[in-house]
Computed example of a mutant assay.
Amino acid sequence: MQGVLALTVCGNTLPVACRHVGGTNIYVRKTDGPEIDVKWRRCAGGAEGSAVRLQNADPTPYVRIDTNFRASTVFCLSAKSYGSNTTDTWNGTVKWNVS
């Protein structure tokens, strides 16, 4: 099951959300919902980071999903849910431009 973070959707590339980063690191935390994997992706396809697992405990601490992004980088986030129900939903918070 796939999920979408509550960010501006980037074109027709569901299930990803798109943001511009001002530099350095990206962090994410899940505030409620089932266990999920989250990773960054290049919005146009190609490069992507490794998945980071956010456990079922709510809320999770902030987890760094990658580092050393250049200023003005455009990135997307993709999420995979490990919930048992097809109607499971989850919410989270993303921080970027964090050193």
Rank of each mutant, 00 (worst) to 15 (best):
N25D: 12
I36L: 08
R29K: 15
C76A: 15
R42M: 11
N97T: 10
T31K: 06
F69K: 08
R53Y: 05
R29M: 14
A47N: 10
N68P: 04
L5M: 10
L14F: 14
T89H: 11
A44N: 15
K95F: 11
S84M: 05
T89P: 01
N97I: 03
G3D: 03
R41A: 10
K80G: 03
V16P: 00
K80C: 01
T31W: 04
V38Q: 01
H20M: 10
G49A: 06
V21Y: 04
T24M: 14
G3F: 02
A47I: 13
F69H: 14
P15E: 05
D58F: 03
G11N: 13
S78D: 06
G23A: 12
C18M: 09
N97A: 14
I36Y: 00
L54A: 06
W90A: 11
W40L: 02
P34T: 06
C18T: 07
Y62R: 03
T89S: 15
T60M: 13
V98M: 13
P34G: 10
Q2P: 13
S99P: 09
Y82H: 15
Q2R: 11
S72I: 02
V16T: 14
F69S: 06
T89W: 10
Q2S: 12
G45E: 07
G45K: 07
S72C: 08
N91C: 05
L54D: 01
N91T: 12
I36K: 00
P61W: 07
C10W: 05
V52N: 03
T93G: 00
G23S: 08
V74N: 10
T67R: 12
C10I: 07
A47F: 12
G49T: 03
Y82V: 01
T24F: 14
R53G: 07
T13M: 04
A17G: 14
L5I: 05
V74Q: 15
G83Y: 02
V4Y: 02
A57E: 14
R53I: 06
L7V: 06
S81W: 03
S99G: 15
N56T: 09
V94G: 00
T87H: 12
G33C: 10
Y27G: 01
Y27V: 03
K80P: 00
T67K: 10
G92Q: 02
R29H: 05
I65K: 00
E35D: 15
S84W: 07
G45T: 10
T89K: 12
H20S: 09
G83T: 04
E48T: 02
G83F: 07
V52H: 04
G11W: 12
A71T: 14
A79W: 02
G49I: 02
L77V: 02
Q2H: 12
G83M: 05
W40N: 02
K80L: 15
A47G: 06
S72G: 04
P61Y: 12
L5V: 01
N85V: 08
K39R: 15
A47D: 15
K39M: 09
T8E: 11
D66E: 13
W40S: 01
D58P: 03
C18V: 04
G3M: 08
E48P: 00
V28I: 13
S72E: 10
T60Q: 07
W96C: 06
R70L: 12
V9Q: 11
A71N: 15
P34L: 10
K39V: 08
T86W: 15
K39I: 01
L7P: 01
S84G: 11
G23E: 07
C10N: 10
N56F: 11
G49S: 04
V4G: 03
V21T: 15
T89R: 13
L77E: 00
N56E: 13
